[in-house]
Amino acid sequence: MPELLDFQDAFVAALGGERSALSPWLAPDAGEAGLSVYRNTIAKGCVDALAANFPTVLSMVGEDWFRAAAALFAREAPPTGATLLDYGKDFPAWLERFPPAQDLPYLVGVAHLDRLWTEALFAAEAAALTAGALAALPPEALAETRLALHPSVRFAAFDAGLPSLWSSARAGHDGLELSDQAEALLCVRAHGAVRHRVIGEAETEFLRACREGQTTAQAAERVLTAHPAADLAPLFAGLIADGVFLDIDR
């Protein structure tokens, strides 16, 4: 009697179209319909998970296009775990190679930004640094502090206005236009829900410096070297208000 693993191998082969693999276990009255039900349920599970995680891509390409593409992706890169919450890490890169997506030049970037948002949604909880806690620090201590980013912080920079386009699409607007202004998108979930906002090159530089473990003074210097016109005080206050920094151990 063949063992359970042989059956599983045969069943998965049959799901992939090789029905004969399963014939030792198929009752004489087994039609094609039963296997199709399993096949459709599996595909639907994957596609629904991708639709939940890439809502902006879905809104841009429409239901039919999205579901067809997502089903192809799911066949090439099935989930590796039972939790589909973060399924689709490789979907943006896959879209980049997907021939029908070549006519939609900003789709890959939009997928990438949807992914950042989802990562921020499910990241670990942590207390964020508040303006009050910061004000309690002596100025020289602040300069030497290495501010760590909150675990939910995600940001990505683009050499065009993709973040603005993504934000408009996410808010349900159509008639989208892509500016050639370099922008970045910041997602953070320090106060319950994910907040996102389009940020400029100076803020992005500041966040990068913090991510690399530099002190506040080094980060400020790095921003001013690259962007001499940057106004640091409001930039820093804005990031604090977003909750992008982890609370400091005192």
């Binding site: 039972a82 939790t83 589909l84 919450l85 973060d86 949604l121 499910f122 990241a123 670990a124 909880e125 675990p151 939910s152 979930r189 319950g192 829900a193």
Partner: peptide, 10 residues
Amino acid sequence: PENYMSAGGP
């Protein structure tokens, strides 16, 4: 439980 197996979130 699979829908709640994340590090954190709302």
